[in-house]
Structures are given as structure tokens and as C-alpha cells.
């Protein structure tokens, strides 16, 4: 029982990583019907930027704002840089290609992913980098015999707050309704006076920024980052996106959390070495039996 609860908490932690990354895929797919392969590398780049900030600015920032101040600063800077990167990539890799249709755009996305990944390798080197240990809170908490770290609590709370904010924006505000309308039917949304480019601006800044914040959290959680990790996380997050119904914002959140929990339970009770295999078995099963995702048509609002 104790193991199960701990694994569920671990699963929710990595699940919230998947969920936050999945949101980026889902939003872009909803609007452009494009699988934004470069999104995993946005996440990686965010993680490396956070790493660099923590390494170089750690002493200074921490002296002025404390440990948490340093972490928040790393996340903010990484998020801002990635919001900018997202816009630049959209301009260069996608915008000129929209008129050519969806397949060329997917190829362009793959190309952008390769470019970004290699750029990261050139800048930071091909070896693993380690997040600076002194910059990471290291406190274990015990609740009723259940072992959980302070970092996990912070990650979970922060991730849920972020997801809650995004959920609110998308589901409850007029702007969110305009994004959902654009995802449903671009022409009719334009007839409402909604500016397509505003929606593009939103998804290509917010998605990468969320990815960057997640990258920093992953760096703190696992300590080690590599320039290829975007592929692995990207693939998991994409699976989560499919699980929840691609294009569906609440679905992406739920899919990510579910995937994390399943992965961790599988690792604990079946085989840790095969945990990635479960993920893809789940993906294949969903694709076979429920291709529209768990939330199916009923709530499948393609954002």
C-alpha cells in the first residue's frame, strides 16, 4: 500500500511534466492540425537555459532572493526566452509553409527539431549536464509513513496551478473561447472578428514557455539533462495528448497525469526496465480501441 501510494505520487509528478508538455502539442494541433515535433526540443532548450542561469547566476540571485528566488528566476527567464524562440520558429519554419498543406509543415517541424537539438548540442556539448545540487531544495517529508520530497510537493502544486490557470483561460474567458472557435473552424472564427495571428501568437508563446518551465522542473527533479531528452519526453507527452484526445486541453492534462501514474505503477509492479514499453502499449491500445482518446467525441474540442 505504501509503495503504491508513493508510486502514484511519483507518477503524478512525472505525469504533470508530461501534461505540461502535452499542452503545447495539443494547442498547436488544435489550431494548425500540425504535430509540432519541435516542441520536445523547446522543453530541452528551456531546461538548459534554466541550468545555465542556475549555474552562473545562482550565487548572485540566491544572495538577493534566496533559493526559491533563484529557481523562480531561472524558470521565468527560461520561459521568456522560449516564448520568443517559439515565435521565431513559427515565423521561420511554419508560417511560410502553411499554404502548402499539412505534410510539408510536419516535415518542416521535424527539420526544426533537428536544428534545435543540434544547436543545443553545439552550445552545451553532447554530454549530460547536471543541475547544481546546492540550488535544489533537498528535504524529505514523511506523511503517515509515506516518503515524499519537498521538491515533489512544490512541483505538483506548481504544475497544478499552471494547469488550472491555463484551463481557466481556455475554458472560461472570451479569449479562450476565441481560441477554441479558431480550432473548430478557422474561417467562421475569422467572421467573428477573431485574428488568427493573435491565436498563433498565444499558442506559440505559451506552449514553449510551459515547456521551458517543465524543463527546469525536470532538471531539478532528475538533476541530469541531455540534449536528446526532448525526444523521449516529447514522445511521452505526445502519447498523453493522444490518450486525452488530441487537441483537447483538459484531455491533455488528464492524459499526462494518467500516463505518469501508469508508468510508475508498471515500473513498480511489473518491471522497471520495461516501463517505456507499457507507455507505448497503452498508446497502441488507445489508438486501436479509442482513436479519439479517452474523452472521445463528447468533449473533443480541438484546441
Amino acid at each position: 500500500m505504501r509503495v503504491a501510494v508513493e508510486q502514484i505520487i511519483n507518477g503524478l509528478t512525472i505525469g504533470s511534466f508530461y501534461a505540461l508538455i502535452a499542452l503545447g502539442y495539443s494547442m498547436v494541433y488544435g489550431i494548425l492540425k500540425l504535430i509540432n515535433f519541435v516542441h520536445g526540443d523547446f522543453f530541452t532548450l528551456g531546461s538548459y537555459l534554466g541550468y545555465t542561469i542556475l549555474i552562473f547566476a545562482a550565487a548572485f540571485i540566491t544572495a538577493h532572493f534566496g533559493l526559491w528566488g533563484g529557481i523562480v528566476c531561472a524558470m521565468l527567464v527560461a520561459a521568456l526566452c522560449l516564448a520568443l524562440t517559439g515565435l521565431v520558429v513559427e515565423r521561420i519554419a511554419y508560417r511560410p509553409i502553411y499554404p502548402a498543406g499539412r505534410l510539408p509543415a510536419v516535415v518542416s517541424a521535424l527539420g526544426a527539431s533537428i536544428v534545435l537539438q543540434n544547436a543545443i548540442m553545439v552550445i552545451w556539448g553532447p554530454r549530460y549536464q547536471a543541475y547544481p545540487a546546492p540550488m535544489i531544495p533537498n528535504l524529505h517529508l514523511l506523511f503517515f509513513g509515506i516518503n515524499i520530497t519537498l521538491l515533489q510537493v512544490v512541483i505538483l502544486v506548481f504544475s497544478f496551478v499552471l494547469m488550472g490557470i491555463l484551463y481557466y483561460i481556455i475554458q472560461k474567458t472570451l479569449f479562450g473561447a476565441s481560441v477554441r472557435a479558431m480550432a473548430l473552424d478557422r474561417d467562421t472564427a475569422s467572421l467573428m472578428g477573431i485574428d488568427f495571428n493573435r491565436v498563433i501568437l498565444f499558442i506559440f508563446t505559451l506552449g514553449p514557455a510551459l515547456g521551458a518551465v517543465t524543463g527546469v522542473m525536470v532538471g531539478m527533479y532528475y538533476r541530469q539533462i541531455s540534449f536528446t531528452m526532448g525526444w523521449n519526453y516529447g514522445l511521452k507527452a505526445f502519447t498523453a495528448t493522444i490518450l486525452g484526445g488530441i487537441g483537447n486541453i483538459p484531455g491533455a492534462m488528464f492524459g499526462g497525469l494518467l500516463l505518469g501514474v501508469l508508468e510508475m505503477l508498471g515500473a513498480a509492479y511489473i518491471s522497471a526496465a520495461w516501463k517505456d514499453v507499457f507507455v507505448f502499449i497503452i498508446l497502441i491500445l488507445v489508438l486501436i480501441f479509442r482513436p479519439t482518446g479517452i474523452f472521445g467525441e463528447t468533449t473533443a474540442e480541438k484546441v
Binding site: 477554441r180 472557435a181 473548430l184 473552424d185 474561417d187 473533443a300
Partner: peptide
């Protein structure tokens, strides 16, 4: 528009 085109899930 023709065919109504309401946003069905809104």
C-alpha cells in the same frame, strides 16, 4: 455563413 457554422462544442 451558409450552413450555420455555429461553434458546436461552445
Amino acid at each position: 455563413p451558409e450552413g450555420r457554422k455555429v461553434f458546436s462544442t461552445l
